[in-house]
Design a binder for these strands. Structure first.
Lengths: 204, 204, 204, 204
DNA sequence: CATGAATGAGATTTCATTCAT
DNA sequence: AATGAATGAAATCTCATTCAT
């Protein structure tokens, strides 16, 4: 069935990734065997290996999406003009996470991707790079808050950006794993904490 | 025959867990083979299997520590009297994470444990339970903040507790995986954000 | 449909054999995959299979040439009139081997063909037949030496022919594998040994 | 069944090599599957892989013996004092080949080993080294013939040694593959050719 | 208590070959 | 005539686990 359209090839790749994603969510990267993927996709071994040259390549394709999938949207929200208030920004991004998990479950693989990054040198490097990029968006966002007078002029924007970026994994874990957290509740929680009264007296 | 001291048994178990931990950190749960653990521990297959009846049991032993290891300390800090300010509480607990990673690397397994919990029914249940317990401590902490007048009386303490609890995974990931975040910086970041000026106007 | 010239077909066959030969020399018959041959020839699977109905057929086509390729020339030299002296005959045939390896490397497959003949019933029969034919030429050559008075009248021509034929593999191996033997040196070596003084006293 | 004697280990290795040798002779290195070796040896996959870490290692173990197996004996014969006549030396070594094929068929693998050496870089180097060593014995043998006055004083001993060494592969192939040559016949053939009358007139 | 040889199912990947287009 | 996607059996090797010693 040769001489096949570019679109056909693309569909096949998607078919394989869909199958692999389903398996990985159900059983994990390593407990999923290639046989599982053949069965789930309805393709033969040879067919799958025509599109991906190893299991690792499939894992990395999906894990990369799980890690980088949100990046574009984060940028969109955080660069909005005028600069959105913090609870809006966080609330909309967590909301986005929720809606994205729906149609394309890839985000459910994020914890597995973090785990993989902890011991796989190469994938770890990729993940660190992507995380640093996205975190940089948060840092720039805090700089804009500062320029807008919404945080004090002497704010350590890098530190604040790291703290904000750090809210996302916590939301993801509670949303995906514990399963009892909504975007709205998270936002509400944030709002109540945003007061100097919660802080230790300034050391200065 | 036997007649071996309780202490001896405990030492053997520790020896095996130490070896397994080192392997798991280096290669991950599933890429680590039992033979890797035999080699790292200097024990024979038979010896290891006398103390743990399967690889799963070893994984679960360590993953449980990675998940629950901090629980006791969290309680200590959050129940302190008088109730510590938010940045103190968070700062001390992230500090604790940092110092705990030193002597006993088990915490480095936390991301792998989260990942495992995503698809392993039984372990997932365990993790959810433990997380909920620890999160409950944060919720109670917010209630004490409220009683002390440090957050408004109408605060949704559950929501706020979830938000606070959610800071921890973000710190862990940035600390372990990206490797460029200190406890002090995280705290500083939090402090600058704790202001109503960062928030959208109250919808009410 | 078709309407393709005989010449075209012949060219395609040659193209495939050229590619296969290159692969076989580089990687051996069995380590070479059909996909290697497709790539080397620049043809598709379907195209190759139109001209050869199996990998075995390709191997046999080339192995046969490797075994039988010299036969015609051997005959030419050994049947020359007047009968050439032994060192001339051997020298010219080894020389021929050397010059033949140049333009068409097929001879480099000879050791693989011998090996194949050792365990492949059918190919072994073919090789035995061809070897026996060529060896017969050597035997007839010795008979002519005898008739010309160059070896004693009671010479066992069969035995002597086998001994002479046996020089060829030794030359091929040293030439192809060790790579430090020339036709001229081989001939010189032979000359110095051709003396009754090297022999044990006649048992008679 | 641990804590096993050195001898047991040695027996197992031998058992595996025996099985592999039988398979390799019957089907060739590459047509023999590891399953074939498991079946022939009566051992499990795991057991075989405890003793040899790859199929290649088994092939090389046997191919090395096939190549180097005779070396010790060659030395013994060629260094004998007084220096044995050429037909004796060749006759006794071919005789040795014949008797060695009997009890331990490894020699039957020689053609496969030559073939392998043609394209396997590493094994090729090994084979070249061993061949050069053994050939050196022949060269030294010719030097002793010269010193004993059995060949002319101006003999090119290297060339003559190469020619003599070259008789062996020819004998092996005719003996193993065609199967109609005896050591005695080969020797007889040599004797009849050892006369200056067979040679072209000296060019000098 | 401890050893470590042995098991054998199962993992990933390759490969000769076919056939719809 | 030619393509090349697809097949699926089979290849090599690994691994958690057992049990005779």
């Amino acid at each position: 069935m040769p001489r096949v359209s570019e679109e056909h090839l693309e569909r096949r790749r998607a078919q394989i990734l869909d199958a692999a994603r389903a398996c990985f969510i159900r059983k994990g990267f390593h407990e999923t065997s290639m046989q599982d993927i053949f069965a789930e996709s309805g393709l033969s071994a040879g067919a799958v290996y025509r599109y991906f040259k190893s299991k690792t390549e499939i894992i990395e394709a999906l894990a990369s999406v799980a890690i980088g999938g949100l990046a574009g949207y984060v940028s969109e929200v955080l660069k909005e003009d005028p600069v959105p208030p913090l609870d809006d920004a966080v609330g909309r991004l967590t909301q986005l996470i929720v809606t994205m998990v729906g149609p394309d479950d890839t985000l459910r693989l994020a914890p597995q991707a973090w785990a993989l990054a902890m011991y796989d040198e190469q994938f770890g490097t990729y993940v660190r790079t992507r995380m640093t990029e996205v975190r940089q968006l948060w840092i720039m966002y805090v700089e804009r808050l500062r320029d807008a007078g919404m945080v004090p002029p002497d704010t350590d924007c890098t530190a604040a950006g790291k703290a904000l970026f750090g809210m996302m994994p916590g939301f993801v874990i509670q949303y995906l794993l514990v399963g009892d957290l909504t975007s709205e509740e998270f936002r509400r929680g944030l709002r109540s904490l945003a007061s100097p009264a919660t802080l230790a007296p300034d050391p200065a």
